[in-house]
Computed example of a mutant assay.
Amino acid sequence: MTTLNALETPAALIDTQRLQRNIERMQARMDTLGVRFRPHVKTAKCPNVTQAQIAAGARGITVSTLKEAEQFFESGITDILYAVGISIDKLPRALALLEKGCDLKLIVDNIDTARAIGEFGKAHDATFEVWIEIDTDGHRSGIKPDDEALLEIARELQDSGMTMGGIMTHAGSSYDYHTPEALREIAEQERAGAVRAAQRLREAGLPCPVVSVGSTPTALSAEHLDGVTEVRAGVYALFDLVMHNVGVCALDDIALSVLTTVIGHQEEKGWAVVDAGWMAMSRDRGTQKQTHDFGFGQVCTEDGTVLEGYILSGANQEHGILSHVGETDHDIRNRFPIGTRLRILPNHACATGAQHPHYAALTSDESVDIWPRFYGW
């Protein structure tokens, strides 16, 4: 335990009050909609955050790497969905988790991987639970709900002795919208596509116990989830500027920030130079294509108060450029003297968190607890 004043900069801060509020908001919504909630833990990759989600009512977790699965399993969580199509060379690691007692679920979206999982499972006398990934918005991977490959993959899994666990989808294109009407529409598209895929499987006599959907914008926008059994979402716990632009959180909901110190000025340019460059913030410029461009992050005072008009407009590896949007601030040296400590809200919480070995978790009395986070694949 330490204090905010004692932290060296740059440092990744989590406001625990905002974090808890965000977690409770999402869980209450899922409870109201009548579905189980399986949070995606790739955003924080932090046992403390995940335990808070489980304490609020989450059941199971979603991971994006096998290393996350291994480390969260070691921390006591057994119900884990690995929500990235598995490369065949990773099957021995997945098998090792199964043999230790992990209730690991894999996903596939093609017949070749399904066949390889079946062959590997039979060769090692193992039964993998596999879900089929459905593409409901053309955003990334998965197969269309009405594609013939859906039934072919399910039959391949069943014939090889694997467990056909269900289907899952992720409406990642929801990040491209910013009105409540558009978000409700994409949430319904996600739901309907997933339910259609499940219906086709069941009509063909194939099992589909789980219908899993999710992204933070659709989870917070869906009007109903008829036919869905569970929802997944991740960035909601911390939120970020991209989510603010999408319209699902306010600036004071963003629980992650980077503490930084003013180390210099370029007065003629209206710049204050800080010690948080892209190595602290990441290079993610996700707000650049949205309605409001926050540069590399929104500037706040050390206590978290937003400084309207001031952003991290540029970033080198270890230097950040703080400036005013539009009119040059020629009083920048007096406004932000050397040694001034500030917080920067990030564009993308997942990417910014990944730049740091741990989080400084701020409690209401400004004391700080150090929370570990996971790295790697």
Rank of each mutant, 00 (worst) to 15 (best):
T2G: 06
Q17F: 00
N22W: 00
E24R: 12
R29W: 02
M30Y: 00
T32S: 14
L33K: 04
G34R: 00
G34C: 00
V35W: 02
R36Q: 10
R36K: 12
H40M: 04
V41G: 05
Q53T: 05
I54R: 05
A69H: 00
S75W: 05
T78Q: 12
D79T: 04
D79E: 10
A94V: 06
C102W: 07
D103K: 15
D109F: 00
I111Q: 09
G118N: 10
D125H: 11
T127V: 11
D135R: 07
T136G: 07
G138Y: 14
K144P: 06
K144Y: 10
K144D: 04
D147A: 13
L157M: 15
L157V: 06
D159Q: 12
G161W: 07
M162F: 03
H170D: 05
G172Q: 01
S174G: 07
D176E: 11
E181P: 03
A182L: 09
L183M: 08
Q189A: 14
Q189V: 15
E190F: 07
A192R: 13
A194S: 15
R196T: 15
G205N: 05
L206M: 14
C208V: 01
P209R: 12
T218I: 03
L220F: 08
H224I: 13
V228W: 00
T229F: 03
R232V: 15
Y236G: 03
A237I: 09
A237N: 12
M243Y: 07
N245Q: 06
I254G: 04
S257C: 09
L259R: 08
I263W: 08
E268H: 13
A272F: 02
V273W: 01
A276T: 03
D284Q: 01
R285N: 03
Q288R: 04
Q288L: 06
Q290D: 01
F294C: 03
Q298Y: 05
Q298G: 09
T301E: 10
T301Q: 00
E302V: 13
V306A: 12
S313R: 08
N316M: 10
L322Y: 08
E327K: 15
H330R: 15
H330E: 12
R335E: 08
I338Q: 14
L345V: 02
P346T: 12
H348Q: 04
C350L: 12
T363F: 15
I370D: 04
I370T: 13
G376Y: 01
